[in-house]
Amino acid sequence: MAVTPLLSALTRLAAVEAHSRTSSRCPCRADTLAERADATVVRHADVVAKAHAPDVSVADLAPRLAAAARLPHLLLPPLTPVPASLHDRLVTFWPYGVPVDPDTPDAAPWEEAAALLARLHRTPAPHALPPMRGPVKAARAVLRLREVSGEHPAVGPVLRAWAGLPGWARGAVPMPDTATLCHGDLHLGQLVRHPAPDGPWRLIDVDDLGTGVPAWDLARPAAWYACGLLPAEEWARFLAAYRMARGPAVPADGDPWPALDVPARALTVQTAARALAKAVARDKPLDEVEECLVDACERMASVPDQLPSSSAK
């Protein structure tokens, strides 16, 4: 991986923060955990420094950091309450937590993730927390696809599936729920054990935290299950644990899909749009998983959504 100026400066910041928090000798070992257009993340010792997306402002981030600091039993709390500034990017500092191991899928903490999510959804949202950003991120993925798509044959099904969604799921109008606390981008990569190595699971990444429709936080595993990409047993474990923890996103029993259908469709379109935009930009064919997502988008146009009409506007 090339060492960019941002990555180099972020590593130095992480080292300074790590040194300031310990009197023992720092091991001076830095790891790049992520380097994307929307986030660069570096670990130095027990400190993780994250450079947020260029368009993230203090007004966006500050109330979300404050919420994480107030809810340490659910969210990994930041080490510092105020973001730093680096190369026109905001930087936050976090304690290191052990992530879910992608190489041991049988040990994936579906029940723990569901229970955390249910507790988050039942927690009163802190004052002045902005709306959850899930629908806005989905809209940006589709906009990016329109910009780079060209004449790729898979673009049509994805855009038709997007056009069939209600306005709130496309970020075009406010969400029908403006009170429930939501994570906004839930997947297993958003969990860590803290304190490391075997502390309780906590949710990370507050960039999209806010108020909104709680079913959005169940939508990614629901979408993968509907597309045949997540085994039915794992989906059943996740859903049962969420219900057992009295999560409000779905009914306590019976069919959950009237609540999950629209968010699951939106996450399917978002994931397909991102994958297709990358494939077009790199001039590479879609892989098997990406083909499944596009096929699911194509099927959506022929199957009406299950959300009650009063909530779909």
Rank of each mutant, 00 (worst) to 15 (best):
R220Y: 11
K313C: 11
R265S: 09
A67V: 02
H87D: 14
H121A: 04
P63M: 08
E291M: 08
L165E: 00
A115C: 08
A279D: 09
D31R: 15
C28A: 14
P214H: 04
A39D: 08
W216C: 09
M1Y: 10
E111D: 14
M300K: 10
A139D: 04
H152Y: 05
A2R: 14
S311H: 14
L129H: 02
R299E: 12
L33G: 09
A128W: 02
V58I: 13
L86Q: 12
D305I: 00
P54G: 07
R70D: 13
A245I: 07
A296I: 10
S302M: 12
V213G: 00
A279Q: 10
P72D: 09
E17G: 02
R160F: 01
P72T: 09
D255A: 02
A226N: 05
K50A: 08
S24W: 10
L7G: 13
P81H: 05
C28G: 12
S302L: 14
V294D: 02
L76A: 07
T104P: 00
R170P: 01
T123M: 05
D101Q: 04
A223N: 06
L181Y: 01
A219R: 03
A139I: 03
A154D: 14
A222E: 05
R29S: 13
G184T: 08
L13G: 10
P54M: 09
S310N: 12
A45Q: 11
A15I: 04
E288W: 09
G212H: 05
V269C: 08
R299P: 00
L286Q: 06
E147Q: 14
D103E: 12
L71E: 00
K137P: 00
A115R: 15
A9V: 01
K137C: 06
A252I: 02
R146P: 00
A45F: 05
M244G: 12
V206Q: 12
P248H: 04
L76I: 08
S310E: 15
L86F: 10
C227E: 11
R193Q: 15
A37N: 06
R202G: 03
P176R: 05
E35N: 12
F238L: 15
V56Y: 06
L86G: 10
A118N: 07
R12C: 11
V56T: 15
D261Q: 06
V3D: 14
E298R: 14
L239W: 01
A113G: 08
L79Y: 11
D283M: 09
L186M: 15
P153T: 02
G210Y: 09
A45G: 10
V206L: 05
V16Y: 01
L71G: 01
L239I: 04
L293A: 08
